[in-house]
Design a protein around this nucleic acid. Sequence first.
RNA 1: GGCCUGAUGGCGGAGUGGUGACGUAGCGGACUGCAAAUCCGUGCACCCGGGUUCGAUUCCCGGUCAGGCCUCCA
Length: 478
Amino acid sequence: MTLSLYDTMTRKKRAFTPRNEHRVTLYVCGPTVYNYAHIGNFRPVVVFDLLFRVLRDLYGQDAVLYAANVTDVDDKINAKAADEGVPIGVISDRYLAAYNADAAALGALKPTFQPRVTETMEAITAFIADLVAQKAAYAADGHVLFDTQAFPDYGKLSGRPMDEMIAGARVDVAPYKRHPADFVLWKPSKPGEPSWDSAFGPGRPGWHIECTAMIEQALGLPIDIHGGGIDLVFPHHENELAQGVCAGHGHEYADVWMHNGFLNMGDEKMSKSVGNVALAHDLLKTWPGEALRWALLAGHYRQPLEWTGDLIEQAKSALDRLYRVLDDSARFLEGVPTAARASGGEHRGAVEAHDAVLSALRDDLNTPLAFAALFQLADHVRSSTTGKDVAGVERGRSLLLEAGQLMGLLVADPRAWFQGGADDDMKAQVEALIAARGEARAAKDWPAADRIRDELSALKVEVMDGPTGATWRIKEQA
RNA sequence: GGCCUGAUGGCGGAGUGGUGACGUAGCGGACUGCAAAUCCGUGCACCCGGGUUCGAUUCCCGGUCAGGCCUCCA
């Protein structure tokens, strides 16, 4: 099975072939750490984490190098640092830690590298110097600018004819630019702002150069896959590409460009600047990270996604269904003597469903199709459990867990998934009530049994009578 | 003004030139002391108008609507 990926540059899905299958390189544009990140920031995090996992599954755990940068030089960081009267590092460290914690809660693996602009200054200034030497950049009015005329293919990635862009532009062009599309590589810092020394004078890097320099430093150019949000195609990635090619790396930058669709809140675009926020940090207080991860993967990554309460609830329900199968089948296996367990049998249906998950993911990360296969696999486990097919349950269960965990899902203990909110005291209390209710039921004292259920209900606990006794779980919040 | 996406059932959301995924919600039934879960059954769609075709939700053209980018928001 080959991996095919949609490439923004060629606008079609292509078979993916890494330059070196022992060293597959992936770079994704990361956050500016000046505040808690909203859930939309985590869509690319989760999407490209999934790609990272699929690549590792295909090429080997250590064969994939994944770099996700952190922008820690930025006006918003400067403003916040000035507000609090602290160095910018205090701000960026604080919110980077929060960001990483949220990403981990959403099931994202740590990238191989997480470069920061402040730790890449030498590479940035060296890169700019290289561009100047190649006559692809020029100094003007204290700035160093990239000369877009030096790159004939400028506009190709985003599919924008440059002359039309300029004709329709609504922005005033800085007078020192030779061409309206030229962009800043290095600029002087304003008084009081952080500044770094360079051959072009003290200042700070422009937006686009940092990614190019970080890629060069962390992975080496060219790379296999470059990813990010669709909104970055122009100008950010277009500019990265221009810089990267003109600095000379065999005139190659990235083989595949991948872009995830936007996350929308209701009908409004979700953006911190608009103030229409849903911080992952807050969402994680009420929802399991796995449910949020599922919700982010509920649609194909290239499609826009509407972020609504319904979406999260449906994601939670879907996971409940899978965890219920895992829980029920685990209880069934606990009741089977070890000696009676066997591992024979083909269980073709389960194997096929497992393979269907893989092939769906390898087809440009078709997560909805992968979810469908996951449910199919769960149905096999369910019917094996009902049919008391021990080998079938064991095989199906391990395939389900394997497929789910490849997607960063089904990582919780099934019982903990349902009883997660309870501490030991509460568990003991619940067990005692359930035992009392069991006695009442045995005596066919239904009013007493129902009274105890009401008590449990008040504790937000739901009891479920089964053939092997009662089980329970924490009820959904309204 | 320029460029680019998308339009599928109550909701979410794949996919396909012809037997209409999957999840969730609805309805009927089984099971259960009741309930939950589970199982069985069932209803529900492919924006509009042309064209190509034996046949289009799927291909082509036009339209409408929605969204994105062109301002260092992923």
